[in-house]
Design a protein around this nucleic acid. Structure first.
Lengths: 303, 303
DNA sequence: CATGTCGTTGTAGCGTTCCTTCATGGACCT
DNA sequence: AGGTCCATGAAGGAACGCTACAACGACATG
């Protein structure tokens, strides 16, 4: 029973197919298929079953993939066990963050990690749909993700996925500086009836919160634009094309935009770091995580 | 960081050297040495250090070997995870027992396991010194061992070695049928002053218990013979060459020998099954262990 | 002090394993 | 029915690990 094969099975599950798994493992689909067949021979029971033109893990495959996570964790603990005897933690850590999170956290984080010395931190910004965040952990060590407050949590959280809370970011109402509400200290949902909304693409956390605000205001929101990039949203709000919801810390730099707390609705998103449990055992990764948590602490607590 | 290399490091520790480890792994010393050097390169810190013409694990090596046990356990759990989906547990289990333990337990155990079906149980009897029992677990799945009551326990018990109590066997005084004490129901240490003793080779559990009886009787015992095999001991006792201590259940079959409980001294030995923690995860091994415990239960409880 | 032995470590050669390339076949979409 | 996507099989090549052999240091013995 090979280590690589177990790792491959895990990747096939999270990526949902042989080809996708091959991509994140830097292999050809054929190699993945061969490893799977070898592993199936070892196990003695079918681990995958064809479903349409793709495949799916059987119950035995799921069980083995779960166990594979524990194996990977144990192996990474072994690496960490002798890394303790190294005078200084070295190595490279890859990190990916959604766009606005990157803007908020990366400048400080990179400086902190550089100050530690010896750790290469390779960052990238990657904005994907909500349910694709966990899959990124196969390509990147640390994934900074966001989800709407009160949402369902991540699939496999705990056993298959390690989640580290970073901060809770309230969603504020963004209005143009010359908007009638602009001078208020705060607004309530009832104040927002009849506004034109600039929302974000479905599947992104802000959208769910927007729905809550709309329900509280008693009327369906008129959504005129669907924009992903917060800076574009700001430009539209400043130009008077509607109001929007922006995270308190990552938006609001535009001079023509005012951010107002929304009372009566708990509107916010959670920013969290996602890691594969085995990766979370690496000493260098832990160091980077510590700095990431500290940096996030500057902008609010996780609760 | 290779699985085999970690397994090799573990074997080098328990066996105490490259050559001995190579023997139990069915490899040449050269292969073991190469795996060690490769592992050291991966770890970044020296794992072994020369000591005389042999070698010893460094602190980092010990830590890594400990972690290697956890890796092996996790991997074996993975195997077990899909073995659950097999309709029937199959495979072969190797078992080794000390001579008298084998005599007591194997006849019943083999029958029990055969009744289960599907499991090949390969038994052997192997009588070694006290401190060599744990090392046998590298060659055999289940090692039935004994140790004097109140002794120090096994090195690495718990983390590096799984111990399953089988039974506690009191040590009785063995005297010839025509001995003055032969008709007593029990004896006390004071009754034994001046007797000639037939003891066993140092390092065997019975010897330690004999010392306790001698101390309680207030005078050093006269040890005239040192015999390992219990049946030889019985023959000598029956012939009137002295008294001895025999386990209650494994000795005493000789018609010319009487076994008498010794009061005032807690004299006994513990019979236990020793396994590598990873081997203990195998489903077939667990089944055999269950039967072994049940069979041992016929002769007394572990306490 | 020389010699033999034991145990570990390096080197060359070989076999095995694993991956890539290419080709095949089934399933979904238009 | 044709095109596309995905998984799987067979053949070739590269990389890895093991064995055989030799060398070296350490201990024991004469």
């Amino acid at each position: 029973m090979d280590l690589k094969a177990l790792e491959t099975l895990r990747a096939v599950r999270t990526q949902g197919g042989v080809s996708a798994a091959a991509a994140v493992l830097h292999l050809t689909p054929s190699a993945v298929s061969q490893q799977l067949s070898g592993l199936t021979r070892d196990a003695g029971v079918p681990l995958t079953e064809r479903i349409g033109r793709g495949l799916r893990l059987t119950a035995a495959g799921e069980a083995l993939a779960d166990a594979a996570v524990d194996v990977a964790v144990a192996l990474e603990r072994a690496r960490a066990a002798c890394a303790v005897f190294l005078d200084r933690p070295e190595g490279t850590v890859t990190l990916s963050a959604f766009q606005s999170g990157a803007k908020l956290l990366l400048p400080g984080l990179i400086g902190r990690v550089r100050a530690l010395g010896g750790i290469d931190l390779e960052c990238s910004d990657e904005d994907v749909a909500q349910d694709e965040f966990p899959g990124l952990t196969d390509r990147v060590d640390v994934v900074v993700a966001h989800r709407p407050e009160g949402g369902a949590g991540w699939p496999g959280e705990g056993s298959r996925l390690t989640v580290v809370p970073l901060l809770r970011e309230p969603l504020d109402l963004a209005v143009a500086a010359d908007h009638p509400l602009a001078d208020r200290d705060a607004v309530r949902p009832a104040d927002l009836v009849g506004e034109e909304w600039i929302a974000v693409r479905q599947g992104f956390p802000v959208a769910a919160v927007l729905d809550a605000v709309a329900a509280a205001s008693g009327s369906p929101p008129r959504i005129t634009q669907r924009i992903n990039d917060f800076s574009v949203v700001e430009a539209l709000v400043a130009a008077g094309h509607g109001v929007s919801l922006l995270p308190r810390h990552t938006g609001g730099t535009h001079p023509g935009v005012r951010l107002l707390p929304v009372r009566g609705v708990r509107a916010g998103r959670r920013v969290e770091a996602l890691l594969r449990p085995d990766v979370a055992e690496r000493v260098v990764v832990r160091r980077v995580l510590d700095e990431l948590v500290a940096e996030a602490g500057r902008f609010g607590s996780p609760e």
